[in-house]
Design a protein around this nucleic acid. Structure first.
Lengths: 230, 230
DNA sequence: GTATTTTTGTTGCTTTAGCAACAGCTAACT
DNA sequence: AGTTAGCTGTTGCTAAAGCAACAAAAATAC
């Protein structure tokens, strides 16, 4: 992946929406931005790390994860190209990340060391279109987290699965959904046991609720009166 | 609650941190801000409503909730004085709220109709200290939602309870925690069955993990070797 | 092409926790 | 004071789902 292609992609990320190439270059320079490469299964940040970089996925997939002391892994969010992450240091809670960020595939990450830059006197970066974009992106990240809680709040695994597939169907604009996880990770995303997930998926297929092959799922809209409680 | 006291409180909210009284007045005027009163159990917004107001809790307590078609209620977040909510319209996902906001007690809410104001040409509000505050608050709301998912991702009710109490202990700075919920709402916050919660709490008291009386909980740090899996 | 690792499905067992129903207690309203 | 409504704890029953272990299949490495 050469630098030119990266620059091309950097011009297209939502964070720089509406900014000209010159303005983007100015921001990248002022902020001392750099692109880092991570290999599949690398940790980008570990929970507890000091983070002062606004990060953008240029290429690849990053998972926001939390692992507990027993090794139980929870995937909180799955971040594709264009996603902004690790923004929490912009708040007033200090700069220690409470979650880890993990390269689910080989990834290029744009790192913007905005640590003090947001407040820093003369060359203040937080203004104009960029400020708007940052606010919009933070608001959207917020919405995504609320959506995630709407999956996890379901009391049954079946309810979680359906909530998740419905969300994906809505965002992918199709009742046929490509899930960006293998079974193990899908279970970790839904915070369920993998074997229980497989079992429940088969059951739901038997019920005629869904169909699936590997990681492609189809929601079969049962007009059936007996749409049982999820 | 007279207007003067409200103005006093408005000067102290984190959103206006670092702004002078004059600047605050200017923002309130430019944005056509107003304070609305809600009675206990009023809905401030319903899921699906069009929302174009940045809202701040001046007085009282607001719950971010999601109710499904079977009346199952989930409390996503509990918002006290100073909290900013309903900010999701600032993103690019449209202005329909996916959650409801509910007055858990009589409340005064500052409404800032920032709908178009953030982008609006001449009298742009998103700049300077206010912009920084908004970014910081959104980042913190984000952190709070991540913390919430760290409760919900636990596979057992005991794990959820402990994760919740630990979080509250950390934020309240004491192993003695005042929970801002009655049992029913605590169950809805943890997305568990109320009777199961009561049962598990008693069990945990028997185990010597916690102590509690009504909504005051104490975390008893068992140095015990057999700190069982949560 | 073979070997090794990872992923997936399956199943038995056991624990967990949801649900429903009820009774006692508290708080609020008149 | 008396009535009503809401909150809390309790318990039996049952369904859900976690866990462990294994084998087949797929992917990766050598």
């Amino acid at each position: 992946m050469d630098v030119k292609l990266s620059l091309q992609k950097i011009n297209e990320i939502p964070l720089f929406d509406g900014l000209g190439s010159d303005e983007i270059k100015e921001v990248l320079t002022k902020a001392n931005a750099l692109v880092k490469h991570f290999q599949k299964s690398d940790y980008i940040f570990l929970a507890g790390d000091c983070v002062e970089n606004l990060c953008v996925v240029i290429n690849g997939t990053v998972q926001m994860i939390k692992e507990d002391i027993w090794g139980e892994k929870s995937i909180i969010a799955n971040l594709g190209a264009g996603s902004v992450f690790a923004e929490n240091f912009l708040g007033r809670r200090g700069d220690r990340s409470i979650v880890s960020y993990f390269a689910a595939s080989d990834s290029e990450i744009l790192m913007l060391p905005f640590g003090k830059m947001m407040t820093g006197g003369d060359n203040k970066l937080l203004q104009g279109k960029l400020a708007c974009n940052i606010v919009a992106i933070l608001a959207d990240n917020n919405t995504k987290l609320i959506e995630k809680t709407e999956i996890l709040c379901k009391k049954t695994l079946k309810g979680k699965i359906l909530a998740y597939l419905e969300q994906e169907a809505a965002s992918q604009g199709s009742r046929k959904v490509v899930v960006p996880f293998n079974r193990t990770d899908m279970a970790n995303y839904l915070d369920a046991d993998r074997s229980a997930l497989t079992r429940e998926l088969s059951r739901m297929r038997e019920e005629g609720l869904i169909n699936f092959e590997k990681n492609v799922f189809e929601l079969l809209d049962k007009t059936d009166k007996e749409t049982a409680k999820q």
